Amino acid sequence: MSALDAVRARHSWSKVTDDAPTREELLTLVTAAGRVADHSSLRPWRLIEMRGDDRLILGKAIAKAQGDKDPSSKPMRAPLLIAVVASLRKSGKVPRWEQEAVASGIAHTLSLLLDEAGWGVFWRTGEYTRSKAVAKAHGLHKDEELLGWLYVGGKPAGKKPGRRKSVDARAMLTRMPAKTKKKSTK
């Protein structure tokens, strides 16, 4: 399958089975995802693998962030969650936003690789990704921000992935505006 075919075939799978890639399978895909464009090779990202009870800890942290007393069940919707962390580096050349873009690129590339390998993937975000309780549960440092989680599991037989409308490429790909002529003040 070509990269174009893989991208065209990608869908979000909000419901997955209890199957998940092994750590060894995941390491192979993370190594490949690490090839994303990265100005100055800062590697301003890291991933946190969550399985089993790790998801319960996250559910409690989300509940705390939302002011709920019962743990959130959201982390239990997939057997594997991969937290995507922007791990910001000091740099005079690479601004913060660009480093966050690299971490986002890792997440998207990894989601494509997981999908192409046959796994169902859904990238979940939310206002609680930036909460103190959730940051603490992930062991984030002061120079790190959580960008969300990739929920990963098996693709259910006979189920269809989430639908997404095709992009109108002609509307999204534009040209630079024509230069405006300066009026003479003479």
Rank of each mutant, 00 (worst) to 15 (best):
A3H: 01
L4S: 14
D5M: 06
A6N: 00
V7K: 12
R10G: 08
H11N: 12
H11K: 13
H11A: 15
S12Q: 11
S14E: 07
T17N: 00
D19V: 04
D19E: 13
A20R: 05
R23G: 14
E24L: 02
E25G: 05
T28C: 10
T28K: 05
T28M: 07
T28W: 00
T28Q: 04
T28D: 10
L29A: 08
V30R: 09
T31S: 14
V36E: 13
D38S: 15
H39V: 04
H39F: 09
S41W: 00
L42S: 02
W45P: 06
R46P: 01
L47D: 01
E49D: 02
E49I: 03
E49H: 06
M50V: 05
R51Y: 01
G52L: 08
G52H: 09
G52T: 02
D54S: 15
R55K: 12
L56N: 11
L58D: 09
L58N: 09
K60A: 15
K60R: 15
A61Y: 02
A63W: 00
A63I: 01
K64Y: 00
Q66V: 03
P71S: 15
P71M: 03
S72T: 11
P75K: 07
M76Q: 07
A78Q: 12
A78L: 08
I82W: 09
I82V: 13
S87R: 05
L88E: 01
L88N: 03
S91A: 13
G92H: 10
K93P: 09
K93A: 11
R96V: 02
E98H: 11
A101F: 12
V102N: 08
A103P: 04
S111E: 00
L112P: 08
L113R: 12
L113Q: 03
L113S: 09
A117R: 04
A117P: 00
A117S: 08
W119A: 05
G120E: 11
V121D: 15
V121H: 07
V121I: 08
F122P: 02
E127D: 10
Y128W: 05
K132P: 03
A133H: 02
A133W: 00
V134L: 12
K136N: 14
K136D: 15
H138E: 11
G139P: 07
L140C: 06
K142R: 10
L146P: 04
L146T: 03
L147M: 08
G148I: 01
L150M: 06
Y151I: 04
V152M: 07
G153P: 02
P156M: 12
A157W: 03
A157C: 01
G158P: 01
K159T: 11
P161W: 01
K165I: 10
S166M: 05
V167H: 07
D168W: 06
A169D: 11
A169Y: 03
R170E: 10
M172Y: 00
K179E: 13
K181R: 05
K182N: 13
K183D: 13
K183A: 15
S184P: 06
S184H: 02
T185M: 06
K186A: 06
